[in-house]
């Protein structure tokens, strides 16, 4: 579905779900990484793996990937979507 080019357009910004996913995973990644570095690693439970550190780093990477994805391919929203139109065109197809 193509976006009508005569309309004013803006990007979905913070509302873009990829930003939301990226932010949540990023915050969790930081918390877990810090726990892995400075907290009790409880290696008796985890069979010697620093589970918090590894999981934290991976989540941080995935979070950054999502935010980067938004930067590379922003979603363009037609202006009237915010003002009451029921125009189904939301996403400019890649």
């Amino acid at each position: 579905m193509s976006v009508n080019t005569t309309q004013k357009q803006h990007t979905a910004g913070i509302l873009d779900i990829r930003n939301v996913i990226g932010a949540l995973l990023g915050i969790y990644g930081v918390i877990l990484t810090l726990m892995g570095l400075f907290g009790d690693t409880e290696t008796d439970k985890t069979d010697g793996i620093n589970a918090n550190l590894w999981a934290g780093l991976i989540m941080l990477a995935v979070g950054i990937f999502f935010v980067a994805w938004v930067r590379v391919k922003p979603v363009v929203v037609p202006e009237d979507l915010d003002t009451g139109g029921d125009d189904p065109a939301y996403m400019e197809k890649h």
Binding site: I31, G39, T41, E42, K45, T46, A51, N52, A55
Partner: peptide, 11 residues
């Protein structure tokens, strides 16, 4: 309870 350290447990 047996496997996850605090942190991952909260997750």
């Amino acid at each position: 309870r047996d496997v996850l350290p605090n942190g991952l447990l909260g997750l």
